[in-house]
Write a protein that binds this DNA or RNA. Structure first.
Lengths: 329, 329
DNA sequence: TCCAGAAACTTGAACGATCCAATCCTGCCT
DNA sequence: AGGCAGGATTGGATCGTTCAAGTTTCTGGA
């Protein structure tokens, strides 16, 4: 069993002091080129890796970022998180950080977990996915000056923290315009009850796109909780009451329900979903696709900006979604 | 800003030495009840939390478990990992461990990542999801005595390491028996090419169940790579060649393809998938459901057994799947 | 009362890195 | 040649915890 390689081992082999080795690692520019190279060679030869625990003890930085993994509520939209986490892990890795998972059943427990993670692991930052009106979590973190980013806008606009989001309104607008271009005029919308930031945003995109084309959206939209059965129910209602020729949905779950409701209807009703989940790909549902990898990357960018660099609050990022075209629209 | 609470702070307040506080935390039984209570009270009052970095430095244990998050290849079956990870995080948390994510594009890079994670973060253990014949990763870890568990049997049976798996054969057998009970006799199987451990196992369950019911399985099965289009193609072939009245599939992707192929066929062909993915729930596909939360929990059990306790290789765990009944069978 | 032995508690050192302040070069200018 | 500025290098202290070894306190039996 080979002896453990520490900074002292490297120093001995390179005939320099520990501090010089440390400088090669942390402030290479203050070490003479020749010395730097020699130390670097020894590091490679011995396979030395800086011990994170020791480093953390001195610096107070763990190079760890926490992200929450949810209990896949819906199942369909859950895969969004999956893809986001993968992107996060990948980008964080490249930036020298690692992603630590945690779960929590409610806000209170989640905040307790923050305390635990910060206290025992000295986490550097948090990534929160999804925020709601008056989110107690962001407040708690902000109060304690803990760096964090949210994937999702702060709908309150109360306090400004770094965030990354995808322009949902632009997505539904794009979907609506595609339907308009295909000749549709009676384009309905199935979304979530008024009051959720994300839901209102997506509905607004559809409404504005219709208005821009001089189509009156009045009476063409329905609201419900998310779910396949709910989507099917509302679509049946729409068919009977306003007989739309196309429908834009706030989620793939709702769109899937709509698809079931229109089975056999002639001429076929066009359907566009939201999130481009695996289910959409599976059943050939056209859907608004969020650039999740990109979003994760920008989250890491914002965090490293706060952690490694300037103290100013970085500029929020709003990404544009695209339309994954399949055969339902 | 309150001063940082360390073990020394607690010791001072409780009028004992640092070591006694440490003992209260790590070996409570050697501290007198009265003292223990006093220290415990101070700990609660001050909100003291043991610093993991300092602890790790002394003990060499990080209380961190690494798990890989994949780039959601297929999309449909990807959600299995999602649910497994959530379970893992939850159970690990309860056992005092945290889950760290990593990614890798191939085995070689993954092994390089192991080295990095072990060297800089001193990870305690790895959880590998899915193993193949002659997996270089398990060999590398075993060679270095790094604790690890695999979710998935070692199909080689070369070296014995702790593993947890779900009895796929039992799952397909159960599915097949249900179809037999419903009166079906010509029950086909769509699976993966011979040579993948998981695929062969699932086919065997179907075959054995048919034989046990004195039905000859010859000619009733087809093999292909995983995918919806592939499933649809093979199902069309089956319809023409052997006209089965029901089919069991090795995955929900294949089953979904089969569903598309039988649309409009009368009398309706029964279909059963595998994995009980969100897609299955969405389209009403009956599917074999793996107890993923349970599997994750048992993985953590095995790991903590190795980490905290005995040096013996723990007994592998084989879990029984269940059938999620919906309207396709 | 005394003492042995166990139990309870305390003290100093160590883990491996970084920070700080002091020292050593090196080359340049006078 | 001597002095000096400036960068490169060095040794010692430190982060918060646990380990190993030491010291004190308690208990019970002669």
């Amino acid at each position: 069993m080979a002896e453990k390689v520490t900074i002292a081992t490297v120093a001995r082999h390179a005939r320099v002091s520990r501090q010089t080795v440390s400088n090669v690692l942390n402030s290479p520019h203050i070490v003479r080129q020749e010395t730097r190279q020699r130390v670097q060679d020894v590091i490679n030869a011995l396979g030395y890796r800086a011990n994170q625990a020791a480093r953390q003890m001195r610096t107070g930085r763990s190079r760890l970022i926490a992200a929450r993994i949810d209990p896949t509520r819906d199942g369909i939209n859950g895969s969004v998180l999956d893809r986001f986490l993968h992107g996060l892990t990948e980008t964080a890795d490249a930036a020298g950080y690692r992603v630590l998972l945690y779960t929590a059943t409610d806000d209170e427990r989640e905040i307790a977990t923050y305390g635990d993670l910060l206290g025992t692991y000295e986490l550097d930052a948090f990534v929160l996915v999804g925020t709601k009106y008056g989110d107690p979590r962001t407040e708690w973190l902000a109060d304690r000056d803990v760096p964090f980013v949210t994937f999702g806008r702060p709908w309150d606009a109360l306090d400004a923290h770094p965030w990354v989001d995808v322009d949902g309104a632009a997505g539904t607008a794009q979907a609506t315009r595609r339907l308009l271009d295909a000749g549709h005029r009676r384009i309905a919308f199935i979304g979530w009850p008024v009051g959720s930031g994300v839901g209102d945003d997506r509905r607004a995109g559809w409404r504005d796109a219709l208005r821009a084309a001089s189509v009156d959206p009045t009476g063409l939209h329905r609201e419900t909780e998310d779910g396949i059965a709910e989507g099917e129910r509302l679509m049946r209602d729409l068919l009977v009451t306003v007989a739309p020729s196309a429908v834009v949905c706030a989620s793939d779950s709702l769109a899937l329900g709509a698809l079931q409701a229109i089975r056999g209807v002639d001429p076929p009703v066009s359907v566009i979903g939201f999130d481009d989940t695996p289910v959409a790909a599976a059943v050939g549902l056209t859907s608004v696709s969020q650039p999740l990898g990109e979003a994760a990357a920008r989250c890491v960018d914002l965090l490293t900006g706060v952690l490694d660099g300037d103290h100013e609050t970085p500029t929020p990022v709003l990404l544009q979604p695209s339309l994954a075209l399949r055969h339902t629209a």
